[in-house]
């Protein structure tokens, strides 16, 4: 596990990423829904190969942060720099092309389409042929489709899912659907991938495998990963930097060890647990 060092901005990133442009620099981000402030004063810096975690009790605003980062919601305050470029005013699909991909808390696959087609949608923007070339089955159409098919199979092989390529995505078990969603996001060639509770509904063995795979993905694709997760073994096991959100605000930031011993974090979690018990 690497040490955290300061960047020119206020954030911290892993030491090995020092000198490189942070993939994500978020400054004082906030959003109000009517009178409710769902997220406020959210500031974070993510290094280009960092795995970072976003934790906090239910309703803390974690998913809302993901929706802000992907421009699903327009922020009320604050700025987002993606690879040094502001994303303000961009639409959701443009932000994806700029390098951010995500999964959803309640899996959103293209259920009626095949597993391979789901990945091919991720590869859509990397394919280069126009509609007339597909009408006439021009060489470029055939070449690009072949290349994308191979690329899709290569991606599926990360989770050993090649044999499922022709299955209907909606017919897969829940855990497999979650993995497919990660592959589809990876297919868009992002520089950072946002995972919303990737281990939800997985058993300890599957979670263990997922942890290794997230690290493998980071190492092979050299991308950053930001994940929301309730499974503390996973978060403490693979995240280098962690931010804790409570009532829409960051109450603590730091390495897993710092977070574990932070009294405010313990209070937020224990307080929360006490409420749930009542």
């Amino acid at each position: 596990m690497s040490r955290l060092v300061p960047t020119p901005s206020t954030g911290v990133i892993p030491e090995r990423d020092l000198g490189k442009t942070p993939v994500l620099e978020v400054v004082r981000l906030g959003i109000d829904f009517g009178g409710l402030t769902a997220v406020d004063d959210f500031t974070i810096t993510v290094g280009p190969t960092e795995i970072c975690g976003l934790i906090g009790p239910n309703g803390a605003g974690k998913t809302t942060v993901f929706n802000l980062l992907t421009n699903v919601y327009q922020p009320t305050r604050g700025t987002i720099l993606l690879n040094g470029v502001p994303t303000q005013g961009k639409s959701v699909h443009e932000v994806n092309k700029m390098g951010i991909a995500r999964t959803f808390q309640n899996v959103r696959l293209f259920k009626e389409m095949s597993v391979e087609d789901n990945v091919l949608i991720g590869l859509h923007n990397s394919m280069n042929y126009n509609i007339f070339e597909s009408f006439c089955k021009m060489p470029r159409y055939i070449r690009e489709e072949k290349r994308s098919h191979e690329k899709a199979m290569e991606l599926l092989s990360i989770f050993n899912m090649e044999h499922l390529a022709e299955d209907r995505a909606g017919s897969l078990p829940y855990g497999v659907q979650r993995r497919l969603e990660i592959l589809r996001a990876l297919a868009t060639d992002p520089s950072i991938i946002l995972l919303d509770e990737p281990a939800a509904g997985m058993n300890p063995n599957e979670t263990e495998a997922l942890m290794q795979n997230i690290q493998k993905i980071r190492d092979t694709f050299r991308i950053a990963v930001m994940l929301i997760e309730h499974d503390m073994n996973l978060v403490m096991g693979i995240c280098e930097g962690i931010a804790v959100l409570n009532y829409g605000r960051i109450i603590a930031k730091g390495t897993p060890d710092e977070i574990k011993s932070n009294p405010q974090v313990i209070e937020a979690y224990l307080g929360n647990r006490r409420n749930e018990g009542a």
């Binding site: 699909h93 994806n96 859509h124």
Partner: peptide, 25 residues
Amino acid sequence: ALMKSRHGRAILSIRDNEIAAESCG
């Protein structure tokens, strides 16, 4: 031919899940 191309797939993906399609670019 259209439905076997990337354009046709994009159209199908919108039917299946608009939000996901948008997030895939």
